[in-house]
Design a protein around this nucleic acid. Structure first.
Lengths: 235, 235, 235, 235
DNA sequence: AATGAATGAGCGTTCATTCAT
DNA sequence: AATGAATGAACGCTCATTCAT
């Protein structure tokens, strides 16, 4: 699961360089970029290597010079996307300052800038869709990416609660709730079924942010009456 | 896209009746239930009809007595899941009473009871994953299911805002933000990559609900300072 | 290869009798009539038993009450057609009188009346098309039907030559040449590729007959210069 | 219906060159040759592509490098055979000289030399057998091949009648009658049911020719008494 | 006798993978 | 390094055959 040094994902750019004699170095990334686009669009199983090769402008055999198998290509796609995501996260960390709310805002919008709106968002969709076909990839992603993202949010929330800026909350669960709209935003970029043409990602994120901040501040005295849901006879 | 009268999805129960000539009526639902499970687990393309048949306890040929093709089976799976979901939504509507917050709670937990925790949640994952392979299915789902769910939330939010229980918000966008954790909850039931073992769905939903209610109430005088995010040179 | 007493082939008549309770006796013939039509149209392999059953107005399973297998059905179709053809030939024989030319005319037109224009002509096409898939059927047909037809022509030609009405000819070969247009007429009834809309069967047969009679009479003194064909280097 | 530049049909010669990467050019003809043989022997539907591939010495998948589908292969087989037949006809035309009888002889024996005795004769059988399954192919054959053959015969007969060498005849119908023994000769090469071991094709053609020439000359004064056939009650 | 649901072997087709060039 | 012709295992789908009713 570690085939090539990672390079940030980039769209298979219509080549404006001399078509022959491309530096060999760039090849793997061009291939994974093409593969990512197609895996995300059609799913792993439904993507033909012919099409990946065609999109990357090479022949099918060439793929096997760089990747042992279709599965290895898939793993490389995820790997490369993850490396880029982690690099982005590291950069966000360095920018990390201000109030907890400001940090939160930086996290949400930084994610969008550096991941959500890039092709890397496709990796999120792939994890959603191919998890059970590639459990070790899913596990890897969970450990490396999600856990790191959760850590950033955890730090932020803890800081906010400690400073009294936020009321006390179940931090781990809140992290899940905060991340969900981001993940869905990534997924819905590729899912006709969910896409909502009326709202821009920026508006979406801002609304998410505002609800969150108010929700997290909530006057501690304020009471949310919670009617115990009737879980019926069901488990 | 309408093959058989719909029946709520149920797991293919191990049958103890005579092997030949089982009630013909029940067959389609047993087959779609088996298909749903496998489509959700492996994806459409990676699911073999042999396996669907085996899981339903029939032979491969039998599938073709009820469905014209693998694609028709897929559509029937979605169709059946959608019919059940809409029936559930209709029932939720009838229970609809109380304050806006109570309504919201009913919607969230009712969804979980009647959809999220049932096999129907798989339909959500299928839409997420197979959208671009079945655009008309995605479109259909969007129009029939999502739109209806959005309508329920819209009514609730509008009522809350009108009564002053909620502050004024961008309702359409808020709907998106409110639905995302539900959709992610459905998806993550089937995605190792996202699952979070530490939190139960009920806790997750409760946290979501509390953040929401507080976020929606927010003292209108309260101010959320919003730093214009630096969208850099990117589009 | 002998399944049921033969009955003359008849078109699957649109049933005007009470649909239920057809005398069981008639069934096999209805089935073979339906099968003949479809075998002739599509060929043995491309004909589905579903279609045969549907055309005969019964269910697929019913076919197996009368015929052991698709192949047995095929053989029964041929058998029944052949029996009818032989009965027709026997009748033609009894009418046999007059000059050799008159006999010839009777044979050609009698064949058309009693075989060529009936569904039995389909048997000829089946033999042409399915010979190598059913060698023993072909053999059987050859021995029973063709041989008998040849015998009729042989008698006629021999009589004509003996009486001086016809010049001496290579009788066996002449038989082949005389039969060919009949066989082609039968075959082309079912072959779009050969059909000639401009000529009626009767005109066709009359022209064949006239050419034949003149050709067989030919003034013995007359000379047909025959240039030895150059068979070139080919085998 | 035009897949590859046509090449005369030839048997798939056992190749002694390297197994991989044989001259790509030659492949299609080898494949169609193998397919022709099997289609003629077993019929289109009963021929398995495995067998075609095996006979051509390639794997099943290779067929799909050259032909889109089994049907496309069939059409290519016909196409290639027709192209060769038309080329042969064109050549025959150039040799065209002498009396009408001599021309007729050249047509009959030239057909045998260049078509009837070659694998192309199989195309005739295919048209006979598969016409209704491939109507547009049958139509195409009829227009291109039969019509051209008829034109050659028409010219010959017209010339003969004009010069007084032949008596006046119904030319179009005579063409049908003249062609029938040729077509049957082609068909019977592949049909056990019709084959006549006692006569060689050459003898057969010679007898056909002699009967024809005498039949066409016929002393115009000569009278063929024609008894109006009793068409009974039948149409 | 008749049905038609069920079966499963078999075939057409696809596509990941190989390898000679 | 790159190609693309060739392979063959695998899968969707069909249909002759069976059998409980």
């Amino acid at each position: 699961m570690k085939l090539h040094a990672a390079r940030p994902l980039s769209e298979a750019s219509p080549d404006c360089r001399p078509p022959r004699r491309r530096r060999k170095e760039a090849r793997p990334s061009e291939l994974t970029a093409a593969a990512l686009a197609l895996f995300v669009e059609k799913g792993f199983a439904a993507t033909r290597l012919d099409d990946v090769a065609a999109r990357a402008g090479v022949s099918k055999g060439t793929l096997y010079l760089y990747f042992e198998s279709k599965e290895a290509l898939f793993k490389a796609v995820i790997e490369e996307g993850m490396v880029a995501a982690l690099a982005a996260a590291a950069q966000r960390l360095s920018d990390f300052h201000g109030s907890a709310a400001e940090l939160l805002q930086q996290l949400l919008f930084g994610w969008w800038e550096q991941i959500g709106q890039t092709p890397m968002a496709g990796v999120t969709k792939l994890i959603a869709c191919e998890s059970s076909n590639f459990p070790e990839v899913a596990q890897y992603y969970h450990e490396r990416v999600l856990t790191r993202g959760r850590a950033l949010l955890r730090t932020t929330l803890q800081r906010g609660v400690a400073s009294g800026e936020f009321r006390p909350v179940d931090i781990e669960t809140a992290i899940d709730v905060i991340m969900a709209p981001l993940l869905m935003l990534a997924i819905s970029r590729f899912s006709l079924g969910f896409c909502n043409r009326k709202t821009t990602p920026e508006t979406y994120l801002r609304t998410h942010f505002e609800l969150l901040v108010k929700g997290l501040r909530g006057s501690s005295g304020e009471f949310v009456e919670f009617v115990e849901p009737l879980t019926g006879g069901k488990r």
